[in-house]
């Protein structure tokens, strides 16, 4: 299933670099859960909705707002319809996993905690070059931004590390520190494989391809060819209205679910190529408005004053990005 057009790299070196007993994909997840659980994080399960990035999980988006302390970690499947490659590209998937850690307020030793998690999954920092390279994050659809880094391990980005500054236009106070590990990429590195489908999913002979190849093939066909756009446009309208109605009766959490749906429907329409460049901005703006409406009543429920409208302190949310870099 690996395409021939991709050349094998220095796989022999890698076999030397990592012990042959490297962690399986599921063990990396279990290890990270154990590590962050020990640090006091609530280990949540994936949110049961399609979303473009773990950041959309209400445990991140909504919990990043408000005054309460909040420490959580969870795996979140990320759906990016446009990234599907029918299972033919060893590095690109329309469905993959992120491991998210959110710590609010961000602790002073967050970087040290993070480095400890790399040790836990077998990335020895005395052998591997870990660097923090500037990478500011923004999500146009969430109206969110933060500053931080992409963390490089031997030149490869393995984690996004962000100090959340604003979500849905509201200042995050206290500030949450957010870590997003790209699990497949991390596992490919730890295991030294060239194709995601070759990952050892567990130590009982199951590969990542065994679990997900068919899914990638079928969902690529769905995303690019068969998703019924007429119905999707209607769905987009329906969930937008539902979201507004729920905001109207003061139910931010159910309303937020509808906003997540709107975002995913937009991503599907985008993958189907039926949204023009000009329209893209408008659709992103609509989703952002929904998220903003939800966040407004969510924040109001804390009795925290909404910051007065003023010039945005952060970057503008002009660039449409499906997964928004997470």
């Amino acid at each position: 299933m690996r395409s021939r057009r991709y050349t094998r790299g220095s796989i022999l070196h890698l076999r030397r670099a990592f012990p042959l007993t490297s962690l399986s994909f599921q063990d990396i997840i279990l290890t990270l859960q154990g590590y962050w659980g020990d640090k006091g994080c609530a280990i949540l399960q994936p949110y049961d909705m399609e979303m473009g990035a773990g950041t959309f999980h209400p445990a991140t988006t909504l919990r990043a707002l408000g005054p309460d302390t909040w420490n959580a970690a969870f795996v979140q499947p990320s759906r990016r319809p446009s990234d599907g490659r029918y299972g033919e590209n060893p590095n690109r998937l329309q469905h993959y996993y992120q491991f998210q850690v959110i710590l609010k307020p961000s602790p002073a030793d967050l970087i040290d905690l993070y480095l400890g998690s790399l040790d836990a999954i077998g990335i020895d920092r005395r052998v591997h070059d870990i660097r923090f390279v500037e990478d500011d994050w923004e999500s146009p659809t969430l109206g969110a931004w933060g500053l931080g880094w992409e963390v490089w391990c031997d030149g490869m980005e393995v984690t996004q590390f962000t100090y959340f500054q604003q979500v849905a236009g509201h200042d995050c106070a206290p500030v949450a520190g957010e870590l997003t590990y790209g699990l497949e990429r991390l596992a490919m590195y730890v295991q030294g494989v060239e194709s995601v489908y070759d990952l050892r999913y567990n130590d009982a002979g199951v590969s990542y391809g065994d679990v997900f190849l068919k899914q990638e093939q079928q969902f690529s066909a769905y995303n690019f060819e068969h998703a019924n756009t007429e119905r999707l446009f209607q769905h987009f309208k329906d969930v937008s209205e539902e979201c507004r109605a729920l905001v109207g009766v003061g139910l931010p959490l159910p309303a937020y679910d509808q906003a997540i749906k709107a975002s995913h429907i937009f991503n599907l329409l985008n993958a189907r190529g039926v949204i023009s460049v000009a329209e893209r901005q408008a659709y992103i703006g609509r989703v952002r408005d929904l998220v903003k409406a939800v966040a407004d009543i969510w924040v109001a429920s804390f009795g925290v004053a909404t910051p007065p409208p003023g010039p945005a302190k952060g970057p503008s949310f002009a660039s449409p990005l499906e997964g928004e870099g997470k």
């Binding site: 790299g9 030397r16 591997h128 031997d154 030149g155 490869m156």
Partner: peptide, 14 residues
């Protein structure tokens, strides 16, 4: 530095 070089080679190769 063997692991670092190997890792960087792999990233560039991809």
């Amino acid at each position: 530095g063997g692991a670092i070089i190997a890792g960087n080679e792999r990233v560039l190769s991809a």
